[in-house]
Nucleic acid binder design. Structure first.
Lengths: 130, 130
DNA sequence: ATAAAAACAATAATAGTTATTATTTTTAAA
DNA sequence: TTTAAAAATAATAACTATTATTGTTTTTAT
């Protein structure tokens, strides 16, 4: 079992902030937004808690090719799309888990606990602009 | 159309090296191996060519949560598994592309050109050891 | 209230990667 | 087969994202 966490104002603010956002902010964006309410919060605290929370499965970490990680306060099964043009990350609401786990169990003999599926290409808005 | 690349010994060596490996080395590992044959090759050259080649689709870049990127000389449709215990990255040979693109086309209106699916958990070897 | 554990802010340090610059290599045309 | 432009290089500096350290503050169970 996981050790219980002690309450902290900073961690609660991070979770609350993520829940208000649909756009998967980076650590830096979380930090600069939280500073409005908690002027003394430090960037290290933001990183530490984002890692802690994603390790515990309370939020999702989204890694896109070398750029800064993005974080998602919603953990229900869904996937992400990263636009090569504007760099934005958006949700794709679908659940392939069963399908994927069925198939992968025929092809792999380790223990799979997670999967992340990231799409990339050009988003609707950027297509229009061009 | 993509501009043609000028030939370079260094780039060729990088491609050749990746084709000999099934274990998806990082830039650093590519670099230290190539130095045996090309003692003057620089790490910047390795990074530049790995990025160039993956942008052109000649190799694959595999990003796992903040750690160094891994590269794969084989580009046929297949997926990857990253072990939380030993950090190794291995192949999962299956192709879900059609299935996935079918489903995602119902759920997204941008232009998707790629997807990457990364599994994680504990690999066969690490399971045995524990 | 108090003491141990946890979390913190501030900041230094690190890892991975990209940019700069002067030099060398490649390639196509004279 | 020289030659000149374009591309690629090595060396190295710089940068970005992230983690580690340290001394202080906050939380929580007693």
């Amino acid at each position: 079992m996981q050790p219980a966490l002690k309450h902290s104002r900073q961690r609660e603010a991070i979770i609350d902030f993520l829940k208000t956002r649909k756009d998967h902010p980076t650590a830096d964006i979380v930090y600069s937004n939280l500073r409005e309410d908690l002027p003394n919060i430090s960037l290290g605290t933001v990183y530490r808690n984002l890692s802690l929370l994603s390790d515990r499965g309370e939020i999702l970490r989204i890694s896109c090719n070398g750029k800064a990680d993005h974080f998602d306060g919603f953990t229900h099964p869904h996937y992400h799309f990263s636009c090569k043009e504007c760099g934005g990350v958006s949700d794709i609401e679908m659940d392939l888990s069963d399908m994927i786990y069925d198939k992968v169990s025929d092809n792999f003999d380790g223990q799979i606990t997670e999967h992340s599926l990231l799409f990339s290409g050009i988003c609707h808005d950027c297509l229009q602009t061009k």
